[in-house]
Design a protein around this nucleic acid. Structure first.
Length: 581
DNA sequence: ATTAGGG
DNA sequence: CCCTAAT
């Protein structure tokens, strides 16, 4: 296509320009470069050129080739981006499916943008994050446009079109992706991208990323009110001129600011570390977001632009939190602001989603009840016994008013423990009161609706236990995965770890039974387990005392019997420890 | 990726 | 059930 040819030309141009600048100017600005690089955490060679560029742009406010260059690169990003928004456009950027790494980068960029913007401009709450970013993007785009005539028309038309012609673009989030992706890659990569992007697989929707397990970024899935974003889009479409003029009049400032921003981007990117915590956080976050995205996708049919806007917002909000956890301390300020934004923007939608998509099932009710329960009645000595979840609810309810039982039941208290622990951790992390708690709770609940078995473990029924015991007797203790594979193919919710845990508990309970002999009294603790099963467990327990208790296999058998005063649990633990050491 | 162990 | 550390 003509367009493509233009692109090629353009980038050839770009490259040569860059090289030129690099050679001629960078050395001259050596010390400057160095200082700048100091600001960046750990400069890498791949970025040196860029740094130089930035430096240059920053120092010499004049529009040097270099900077034009750079912005044109961004311009391209914008361009493709707008192309992506066109469902009709044959080679929208949407087709360029970024690899996971790209997402990282992209997010990094956004982070950088956010952070930087925050620092530099001190975002005003009302405008939300989006606006500064948009401005930034716009700026870039326009800078490029102004200096690079080739692209001007294209982009313009695209933008205009997207507004008037196809409001319901499918790849909303992709637009964001497109932008950041193209803007993130190093300049060298630009060239490749240019060629590869347009022809890449014709449809890569956010859904595709979603399917990826780990790294995916549920771009689409945000639940933000999009008014803000919309506004900005409008601006983007209609106020270009004013923006451009503003930019031009402000050349100096803008340039430096941009330089800063970009620097921040790079820095962030490099700063990223994958601590376990970090990874965990991010993944969790993603999971959370994922939920949102999935729900949202349902809505997508009806809401288009708004959703898109929301998603983009989310893109901005999602990541920073994760990222900023790298520097534990100084991140706090960042966190505050960012999460504040996040909350402000994201909460309403979440609530909406909840009401819309979360039918009140027994499970959710149950959870709610639990929460209430936990809040009002910390110490509970109830004993809860149930088979159906509904029963749980009723039981808990009634128990709230009437504490008749004083028996301590492990599962129940554990349950509570989990919740409490989690909530405390949550509070610890967030230092802002606001209503983040409730929000988070809601999210959590929503999440738990699906494949999250945090709350209310499924009770093991006899058949399951039998299967487990069979499996163990067949494959031995420790082959949890195998047992799971062979014996629990039907019940997907049992993980190998679950099996192991269950076995642990079985051992314990069987021991207890041994201890108390025929305590009977229906203790309810082993209610549904038939004697036969218990026997089997005991047999197995003799065979494999649990996790390969190397050495004294007799210990577990002996100690429990001879102990009288202490609780069997303690004993078992003790034994295990002893054996371990 | 699985397992052990602690909560 | 969750989480972490160790393999």
């Amino acid at each position: 296509m003509d367009h493509e040819a233009h692109l090629c030309n353009k980038f050839v141009n770009m490259k040569s320009q860059r090289v030129k600048v690099e050679d001629s100017f960078a050395p001259a600005l050596d010390d400057e470069t160095e200082t700048f690089e100091h600001l960046l955490a750990e400069p890498k060679t791949e970025y040196v050129t860029v740094d130089g560029v930035l430096c240059f742009g920053k120092e010499n406010a004049e529009k040097c080739l270099n900077f034009d260059d750079f912005s044109s690169g961004f311009d391209y990003g914008l361009n493709t981006y707008s192309g992506g928004r066109h469902s009709a456009h044959p080679r929208g950027l949407r087709s360029a499916h970024p690899r996971q790494g790209d997402y990282e980068l992209e997010l990094g960029v956004l982070d950088g943008l956010l952070d930087e913007v925050e620092e530099v401009e001190d975002i005003h709450a009302t405008n939300g994050l989006a606006s500064p970013c948009d401005d930034f993007l716009l700026d870039i785009g326009f800078t490029g446009k102004v200096s690079e005539l080739e692209f001007g028309p294209c982009e313009r038309s695209h933008l205009g079109n997207s507004e008037s012609r196809s409001p319901g673009l499918s790849g909303s989030s992709n637009s964001a992706v497109g932008v950041s992706e193209s803007s993130t890659v190093t300049i060298q990569e630009f060239e490749c991208k240019n060629h590869s992007c347009p022809k890449a697989s014709p449809h890569k929707f956010p859904g595709d990323f979603r399917r990826k397990k780990r790294r995916q970024t549920p771009v689409e899935g945000s639940t933000c009110p999009s008014s803000i974003r919309l506004q900005n889009f409008d601006e983007l479409d209609y106020d270009q001129k004013s923006l451009v003029s503003g930019l031009l009049s402000n050349e100096n400032e803008k340039d430096s600011i941009e330089a800063n921003k970009i620097g921040a981007i790079l820095k962030k990117k490099r700063l990223r570390k994958t601590t376990q915590r970090l990874v965990e956080d991010s993944s969790k976050k993603k999971a959370k977001d994922l939920m949102g995205s999935e729900k949202l996708s349902a809505l997508a049919a009806t809401e288009d632009l708004r959703l898109k806007a929301g998603s983009q917002n989310k893109l901005h909000h999602t990541r920073p939190r994760t990222l900023s956890s790298v520097p534990e301390e100084d991140s706090i300020s960042d966190n505050l602001t960012l999460s504040e934004f996040r909350i402000r923007i994201a909460r309403p939608k979440k609530q909406a989603i909840r009401t819309e998509f979360q039918p009140i099932t027994s499970e959710s009710e149950d959870e709610i009840v639990t929460t209430i329960f936990e809040k009002h009645d910390r110490r509970k000595h109830q004993h809860i016994k149930f088979d159906s979840e509904d029963e749980i609810v009723t039981t808990k309810m009634s128990e709230k008013h009437d504490r008749r039982k004083h028996q301590l039941v492990k599962s129940e208290s554990e349950d509570e423990t989990v919740t409490r622990r989690r909530s405390t951790r949550h509070n610890r992390r967030k230092h802002q009161p606001i209503n983040s708690e409730s929000e988070d709770e809601i999210v959590r609940r929503k999440r738990s609706k699906k494949h999250d078995r945090r709350k209310h473990q499924r009770m093991w029924d006899v058949s399951e236990v039998m299967a487990l015991v069979d499996g163990i007797s067949e494959h031995g203790v420790g082959q949890w995965t195998r047992i799971k594979r062979l014996r629990f193919t039907s019940s997907a919710y049992r993980t190998p770890i679950d099996l192991r845990d269950k076995w642990r508990n079985l051992l314990r309970s069987s021991c207890r039974k041994k201890l108390k002999k025929e305590v009977e009294e229906n203790e309810e603790n082993d209610m549904h387990l038939p004697q036969s099963l218990i026997y089997r467990v005991r047999e197995l327990a003799k065979k494999h005392p649990y996790p390969r208790q190397r050495g004294k296999k007799f210990a577990p058998a002996i100690l429990p019997t001879e102990s009288k005063g202490a609780s069997s649990d303690l004993i078992i633990k003790y034994v295990r420890r002893k054996n371990r050491s």
